[in-house]
């Protein structure tokens, strides 16, 4: 930024001054791109540094030096690291994540299917969890330090304190085994109808909702409480507004930035952090796919999963930052 300001002189600065919102957003997007590039280097280097190699694992007992050398040459592993990195990166930029070493299928195709499943589960959990968490957060501010507030807090804290696989098994035990009102395993397949799909993923969704609820709810509560002592909240009270309206209309809009950030973190968690839940419910998502790939050292798949997880994480955080910027009236409406 400073370079362009020096080179362009005052016009560059005045552009920035005139469109502070656009400038901030563009800056944030560029930063995300740089970050993503750095992550791709890290992932490649990390995978490269892993002990053990694919050929040995794949051949098992029949791993003669000759066979290993054949496979290494076949996969192009004898080329220098940098060449392989840029080959890989070039492919990724065109949407080609290479070929799986284990199954000899296109990684992109397999990932596409799995990613769709993961996003569906995460999205469905988010649609329930986010409004519920924010609503409960506002309710608990409304009833602060009274019974409903305490009940909401205790339940959500209990949910976050239990490991997610434990919650998962509890739900399976009661709802699938004892009461028989939910299905297990939650394995979805292509060609399944929408409602059937939703029914199938009810239990993993419930598990995820319980896991992310407390974090978002408590941040909403804290963020709103911190603006409750502002002078404009007193104004709202002295205008004769009801406490609920004051919270929803006057406090919440000013507490948006921290709430948006914690929601984004939890959405990211829903996509990339659900390995355990996927395994428990035998759900064919990205997490399980990556775990399988790591056990056989199927590096193209591991790299693809790592990069996609990183991209989701960076994208959601970038969106959160941009939304938080837009939520600030000072930036949205410059003087």
């Amino acid at each position: 930024m400073s370079n362009s300001a020096e080179a362009g002189g005052s016009p560059a600065r005045s552009l920035r001054d005139r469109f502070p919102l656009a400038a901030l957003i563009i800056e944030r997007c560029l930063l995300s791109l740089v970050l993503l590039f750095a992550v791709s280097v890290l992932i490649f280097a990390g995978v490269e540094a892993l002990p053990g190699d694919f050929a040995t694992t794949y051949l098992g007992q029949s791993a003669t030096p000759q066979a290993i050398a054949n496979i290494t040459a076949e996969l192009g592993l004898d080329r220098p690291v940098t060449t392989r990195y840029f080959d890989w990166l070039g492919g990724v930029l065109q949407g080609d994540f290479g070929t799986s070493w284990a199954s000899r299928n296109s990684v992109s195709e397999q990932v596409g299917n799995r990613l769709g499943n993961s996003l569906f589960l995460a999205g469905f959990a988010a649609i329930i969890a986010v409004p519920l968490a924010i609503g409960l957060g506002m309710l608990s501010v409304h009833f602060r330090d009274r019974m409903p507030d305490k009940i909401i807090n205790v339940i959500s804290l209990a949910a976050i304190s239990l490991p997610e696989f434990f919650i998962g098994y509890l739900l399976i035990l009661y709802f699938a085994v004892n009461f028989g009102i939910a299905t297990f395993p939650a394995t979805v397949y292509q060609g399944m109808g929408f409602f059937e799909r939703i029914q199938t993923i009810a239990l993993p969704t419930a598990t995820l909702v319980l896991v992310v609820l407390a974090h978002m709810m408590r941040m909403t509560r804290a963020a709103i409480l911190s603006v409750m002592s502002s002078a404009y909240m007193e104004t709202a009270e002295l205008k004769g507004l009801s406490s609920w309206r004051a919270i929803v209309k006057h406090a919440a809009p000013n507490a948006l930035a921290p709430i948006i950030n914690v929601v984004a973190l939890n959405l990211a968690y829903l996509v990339v952090g659900v390995v355990v839940v996927e395994v428990v419910f035998v759900y064919p998502g990205m997490g399980q796919y990556m775990v399988d790939a790591v056990t056989v050292r199927d590096m193209p798949v591991v790299q693809a999963c790592g990069l996609i997880f990183a991209a989701v994480y960076i994208l959601l955080n970038m969106l959160a930052d941009i939304l938080a910027i837009i939520a600030n009236p000072r930036l949205r409406h410059p003087r």
Binding site: S230, A231, Y232, E234, T235, A236, K249, H250, P253, N254, P329, R330
Partner: peptide
């Protein structure tokens, strides 16, 4: 302080 008493978001 009207500056503090007005809600900055509206």
């Amino acid at each position: 302080s009207a500056a503090a008493a007005f809600n900055p978001a509206h």
